[in-house]
Design a protein around this nucleic acid. Sequence first.
RNA 1: AUUCCCAUCGUCUAGAGGCCUAGGACGAAACCCUCUCAAGGUUUAAACACGGGUUCGACUCCCGUUGGGAAUGCCA
Length: 470
Amino acid sequence: MTIKTRFAPSPTGFLHVGGARTALYSWLYAKHNGGQFVLRIEDTDLERSTQEAIDAIIESMKWLKLNWDEGPYYQTKRFDRYNKLIDEMLADGRAYKCYCTKERLEKLREEQMKRGEKPCYDGHCRCSQEQHSPDEPYCVRFKNPTEGTVKFHDHIRGDVEISNRELDDLVIRRTDGTPTYNFCVVVDDYDMGITHVVRGEDHVNNTPRQINIYKALNAKVPEFAHVSMILGPDGAKLSKRHGAVSVMQYRDDGFLPEALLNYLVRLGWGHGDQELFSVQEMIDLFDLDTVSKSASAFDLNKLKWMNNHYIKTLDPEYVASHLEWHMKDQKIDYSKGPALSSIVKAYAERCSTLKEMAEQCRYVYEDFTELDEAASKKWFKANTPEVLTRCLEKFAAVSEENWKAENLHPVVESVAQEMEIGMGKVGMPLRIAVTGRGQSPGIDVTMELIGKSKCMERIERVRDMLAGAN
RNA sequence: AUUCCCAUCGUCUAGAGGCCUAGGACGAAACCCUCUCAAGGUUUAAACACGGGUUCGACUCCCGUUGGGAAUGCCA
């Protein structure tokens, strides 16, 4: 049997990291088993579904490189199919028309709550003999079995069993004629040949109802895996007030898809002591049956650590292609300076995000007027003009084409030696002069990146400024 | 209220009855390295929610308590 999984988000908002993890697990399971992965948009809620959300979900999936073999399918395009089945069920009594008004249902619920009962539809129209005129509005309810229990084996949770007495007759077609989610998923998963349904934990309670529908449709029941929730750092359900929740926000904040994927796969799953997984390793090693049952808290620090790891270890050209996005985002014109891959090489170890990297390397491409105050105060001494002057003299002797870190480093060293001061007393004033900041990559590589003419200009300017002040 | 689900360091996890004096990672602390900031290296602190069973033996199995979460929609 070919394994076929799907990811079926409802387009009511952006792709949440929780949804992304579910999609990843589903995708990995299919890939691991040489199966197929389907993307389906569950847009039966006409009120809340938006094209904007559909676009955002697709963009997120593409950014994460979670490619799908089929789809995207849209439930709204399959209404005829659902309604045909519902009509058939209506005809042979697997479903029935319900004329109950909202008011009656509300009252019923209130009374049940008051009595301390679980609010459930009472089956009023299931057995009613009332006559209704053809133009009276109605919805359609599924005739759920009243006896017995529903059992299923969940790949993550194990065996789950619930009594049919807990389940009421759910609405499968609204009064306005549109079918509802619990019915559509079943029909879709059946029609599309889904063998394994991997989805969020919030669907565990719906599963028994859906299994009953599968049976009513005489369809093969797929296997299930319900993935737990993702919590914020405070243990509450992860939401916007915790910071970034949408996949695109992580892109905007400077994360690499490789890092997000690795972080997400480890959040709820492990393979011994291994922390770092390439996508191929994930595919080879991932297993639904060992996914953690409990909810897990999102730890931004660990994601940052992983992001830094991938910034350092992935091909600099590749990382640069992502950095490019942030350079544009921050409106830094990088066309007249060093290649972005050389920025990646120099800044990788000191940046946990690409957004930071873009911010930090700005002075390589643009001039600045302000110098970091704290750093200046700490490192600019009485002898600084002399230090800078000596550097300037020696740097002048280095040609443009020899303006390389390995040739610049000896200059700094020799100035320190000649003046009998530490490297820091030379390097730091230089760094501040050339970058305007108190921190940067090694002073030699930094100067190489900035280039000779700009370095000379900047050093001179600061030297003159300090000399003038004395 | 009812039903279902969950429970190992602050966080993510390893652990499928003896391998556990509970391992790793992030974070934290300390030290080393060092031209800054990082990165890197070494080290330290830090957990089996509680109570009963079962067993020669329980982090691991069972029951209960407590604490979280979800569902009970003509949302998905």
